[in-house]
Computed example of a mutant assay.
Amino acid sequence: MKLGLQMGYWQKGPIPNMVGLAQEAEDLGYDSVFTGEAYGSDALTPLTWIGAHTSKIRLGTSVMQISARTPACAAMSALTLDHMSNGRLTLGIGVSGPQVVEGWYGQPFNRPLERTREWIDIFRQVIAREGPVTLNGKQYQLPLKGGMNLGKPLKSITHPLRSHIPVFLGAEGPKNVALAAEQFDGWLPMFVSPYRMDIYDDSLKNKPEGFEIPVSINIHLNDNLDEALLPTKWMLALYLGGMGAKNDNFHKNLMGRMGFGDAAQEVQDIYMSGDIEKAVNAVPDALADEISLSGPKDRIKERIQDWKKTDVTSLIVGRKETAEESLDVVRFMAEVTL
């Protein structure tokens, strides 16, 4: 099993010691480093900065939101960064959710599966550079129908370094996971339990040879297990209660498929009533424990063995609040995994 480093997206300001942390991970033998975006810092600029200060580690986005960029624009950025990093780019993409897509980007969220299929079609055409890019889709048309009627099919001026740049799909729902297995090089899941991977068996039945499943996971070192689980419980309460509409929350739906539906509904109800601390306490310890690596070091060493029995190809280690804490976790995971 490989290791990666999850930088995620910035909060109020830049990530402390971002470059130094990536360099340490590279020196320790980490396979990849990922950046993300929500509605603040973007994913590609920090990744480019990291790429300029490293030489071997794979560079990934987890995830780049497809509503933020047309597929041709994303392909331009990807082929540029792939050249500049000497072929180290892996692009992770996702549809985000309706609150961000419609509230931040001002784009419609309807028919996300259709939009993703058309998006990756255009992206692949640009990178392959076998001819002018065309698509007569429902979400995208190249050339555009209407407007000034002066558009013409174009082919990238710049020759990509590679004719195929790996693209992973961030997905939670069964149909989206199936799409990842059918048309992408890998799948970026959320909230994965190594003991409940069977819920994805049907969706992943068509995954090809070499299909990658990197799982982002938070590591909480603490001899007191209850205290170690608290950060994950706070995170779950936020995603269940504050990251999605009440009647359309992808994360809550996933918790239901994992067998925690009643608890997830309770957490959402309490969170939306305004009692956030009570919502945190309502998150089941078992759920927080299964999707993280928490507790004393020896316990975490044992739990890593359970991950190695799954189809997961990489554990993507989440960074901590401070640079010092992040370095401790990065070094610990390299010691016990690599």
Results as ranks from 00 to 15, higher is better:
residue 55 S to T: 15
residue 112 P to W: 06
residue 5 L to G: 11
residue 180 A to T: 08
residue 126 V to T: 05
residue 198 D to L: 10
residue 128 A to S: 13
residue 36 G to K: 03
residue 290 E to V: 05
residue 124 R to D: 13
residue 99 Q to G: 00
residue 47 L to D: 13
residue 252 K to D: 09
residue 77 S to W: 02
residue 125 Q to C: 08
residue 168 F to P: 01
residue 165 I to C: 03
residue 138 K to H: 08
residue 102 E to A: 03
residue 252 K to L: 13
residue 88 R to D: 12
residue 62 S to R: 09
residue 157 I to L: 12
residue 270 I to D: 06
residue 29 G to H: 11
residue 51 G to V: 15
residue 3 L to R: 07
residue 182 E to L: 06
residue 333 M to E: 10
residue 232 T to Y: 00
residue 97 G to Q: 13
residue 192 V to H: 04
residue 244 G to Q: 03
residue 137 G to W: 04
residue 46 P to W: 10
residue 223 D to Y: 04
residue 162 R to D: 06
residue 153 P to V: 05
residue 338 L to G: 06
residue 242 G to N: 05
residue 30 Y to P: 14
residue 247 N to F: 12
residue 180 A to E: 11
residue 244 G to R: 02
residue 245 A to M: 11
residue 195 Y to Q: 09
residue 109 F to I: 09
residue 267 V to G: 04
residue 95 V to K: 00
residue 119 W to A: 01
residue 286 A to S: 10
residue 51 G to W: 07
residue 258 M to W: 05
residue 180 A to C: 13
residue 315 L to P: 04
residue 42 D to F: 03
residue 243 M to T: 05
residue 71 P to V: 00
residue 212 E to F: 04
residue 181 A to P: 15
residue 26 E to G: 11
residue 104 W to K: 03
residue 250 F to H: 12
residue 34 F to L: 08
residue 230 L to R: 10
residue 9 Y to V: 06
residue 32 S to W: 11
residue 111 R to T: 14
residue 105 Y to Q: 14
residue 230 L to D: 11
residue 273 S to A: 10
residue 294 S to H: 01
residue 47 L to H: 11
residue 75 A to M: 07
residue 239 Y to D: 02
residue 158 T to V: 14
residue 233 K to V: 08
residue 63 V to S: 09
residue 100 V to Q: 00
residue 97 G to E: 12
residue 6 Q to K: 11
residue 309 K to H: 07
residue 49 W to R: 12
residue 112 P to A: 09
residue 153 P to L: 01
residue 206 N to E: 12
residue 290 E to K: 02
residue 117 R to W: 13
residue 174 P to R: 01
residue 157 I to G: 09
residue 133 V to L: 05
residue 141 Q to I: 03
residue 218 N to S: 10
residue 148 M to T: 14
residue 280 V to K: 07
residue 256 G to H: 06
residue 245 A to S: 11
residue 39 Y to G: 00
residue 270 I to M: 04
residue 141 Q to M: 04
residue 207 K to P: 15
residue 90 T to N: 06
residue 124 R to P: 00
residue 221 L to I: 12
residue 83 H to Y: 05
residue 5 L to K: 06
residue 304 I to M: 06
residue 86 N to R: 12
residue 207 K to S: 12
residue 220 H to D: 10
residue 153 P to C: 04
residue 220 H to F: 06
residue 49 W to G: 04
residue 167 V to Y: 10
residue 269 D to M: 07
